[in-house]
Design a protein around this nucleic acid. Structure first.
Lengths: 333, 333
DNA sequence: TTGAAAGCGATACCAG
DNA sequence: CTGGTATCGCTTTCAA
């Protein structure tokens, strides 16, 4: 920058202002400097800028296991929307394993302006670090931990809605395949579902699960398929599309027609579940809006202003596929 | 850091050295400082360090469309392996669209030590920026562009291997569904396949394609299914697993048995293709090794040392699934 | 083995 | 409107 200033015959501070469109710089001087910068291929060093300015322009991103396409879709939204706000993502973790200390430390070392945690599990270490250092924190698809704001889909309502629809369509023996029993997302979805089944006076739903994976759904599907027909459920909720896909695969492999003999529904609305051969009936998370709100929450907390932690819940969108028998009023149109 | 130095009764430079395990600092002083830093929760500011040191510890990551799970898997490897080397990823792009100028600029603004481009398409802008600014660049799953090194799977060999196996197993009417006609990956895979088909004296393979997506594979599958039986191919290669999954879905939906009536094979080895209901016979890219080599290449070019661009090609691993009829010698075991 | 001082590249305040 | 100067947090000579 010094050499640029010399070449332009002005002071460094003038260059600095010109390049950031400071209003109180004369247009002609600014144009000359901008042109010169362009010419010599000068790019401001954000690291140096952050040093004095305080803000790094970085958002830490902690991702969950990306074998669940939901996280991949979330990530894509995060990159795009963050870029639109002039922020960059520091990707510090992606995967199922616990986040390491060195990794969590990076959030502080790089002075991230905020942190986005999308993993339903294992986020505690990163969350603690953010709390201890007043780094704004927003969790997506996850209930707020001790500290931090959160944006999620109304999981309970999603489960309840699907239960209502299945029941209205005449299903009587329902089942639910859960994910990780320690994650709020999985629990709430199952709870909402089960509550409505009970409210309808139907028998207690069968319950399976333990991990949020295709394999676990497949396993549950095999067990269900092996049940003698009278005991066999006529409708199953996979608490995630990934699980629901596994269920459906197992049932079909066992020669059971979906939705002919058993209806299957999921939650998330990932692309893979919506296309053939699944055409899943599911409740899609409003990803675009969720990320928008998440970044809003971060933004509001980024300039040093303290604000109370905030929890935002958005309603999901019912996606009518062909994996479940639904009330005629929905399928007629 | 100044306050830390004051509290410890030493100079800032001593603190700096102590925290980085400089050998020429007395152990007791170092321990005292480290303990104190721990106590007050001090974290070094890497931005400031980079300012003087030169290296930011950041690797720019440009990702392709993550609806293809291949890119998601690649990303997970990238994060893990980069972390193991003490690097962090600056995620500047993910998705199908072209990379924007502002995004590409971020690579320079944050002074990334190197750049990893995994998108088979649209990487030119980022690549150009790296070239113009001597930022080490490695492309993964993509042939080298004008500038930069590259690591990829031997795509041609993968296509050739699958053709050989299908032919050996007795298939006679082959077809190939390509991806984006401008990407080296897609072209090479198809070329290898077609070359072997010709070499075997079989009729010219049917060709479909245009985009690397499930939808495009599905479309091609529908067309294939609609062909009158005598013209219908008895084996199809989808140049990516994503495409192959689409093909298989369409065929099965049309009531055609896979692999009973038509064999389907893919390339990539993504998790989704290997599990039920696909159980794809495919050539898996050695992701772990590819990322390892990619980071090696970056590392060798990162400390200012100039090295010639390098291209590394790794052989893929045949994954025997159940989506294709294969020679008995392979399926016997 | 430790300390003092000079930067690294930018911004911001205070003058002019 | 523009120029000097202190400063951000850390590393790195150069001395002691």
């Amino acid at each position: 920058m010094a050499s640029l200033a010399r070449a332009a015959g002005v002071a460094a501070s003038t260059v600095s202002r010109a390049l950031r469109n400071d209003p109180r710089i004369s247009p002609d001087v600014r144009d000359r400097i901008v042109a010169l910068a362009q010419e010599v291929g000068y790019t401001p060093n954000i690291l140096a800028r952050s040093l004095v300015g305080g803000s790094s322009g970085l958002i830490g991103l902690v991702l969950g296991p990306v074998d669940n396409p939901f996280y991949a879709e979330l990530m894509q939204r995060a990159v795009t929307q963050a870029a639109a706000r002039g922020w960059r993502l520091l990707l510090v973790h992606a995967g199922p394993g616990p986040i390491e200390q060195a990794t969590a430390d990076a959030l502080l070392q790089y002075r991230v302006d905020g942190c986005l945690i999308t993993s339903a599990e294992l986020s505690s270490r990163a969350a603690r670090i953010c709390r201890d250092n007043q780094v704004p924190l927003v969790m997506v698809n996850r209930v707020a931990w001790e500290h931090g704001s959160a944006v999620s889909c109304d999981n309970d309502a999603a489960g309840a809605l699907l239960a209502d629809l299945l029941i209205e369509a005449g299903h009587r023996r329902l089942a639910v395949v859960s994910g990780n029993p320690t994650t709020s997302t999985s629990i709430e979805r199952a709870d909402g579902f089960i509550r409505r089944v009970r409210a309808a006076g139907l028998p207690e739903p069968l319950r399976f699960g333990g991990v949020n994976s295709h394999a676990k759904g497949f396993e549950a599907g095999q067990v269900i398929a092996a049940l003698p027909a009278p005991d066999r459920p006529d409708a199953v909720l996979g608490v995630s599309d990934l699980i629901a896909m596994g269920i459906m695969d197992a049932l079909r492999e066992a020669g059971i027609a979906v939705p002919g003999e058993i209806s299957v529904v999921g939650i998330d609305g990932v692309a893979a579940a919506r296309r053939p051969p699944y055409r899943m009936t599911t409740v899609a998370q409003p990803l675009e809006d969720m990320m928008e709100r998440a970044l809003d929450l971060l933004n509001a907390r980024m300039n040093g202003v303290h604000r109370a932690d905030e929890v935002v819940t958005l309603r999901g969108d019912l996606v009518i596929g062909q994996s479940a028998r639904l009330p005629a009023r929905l399928t007629a149109g």
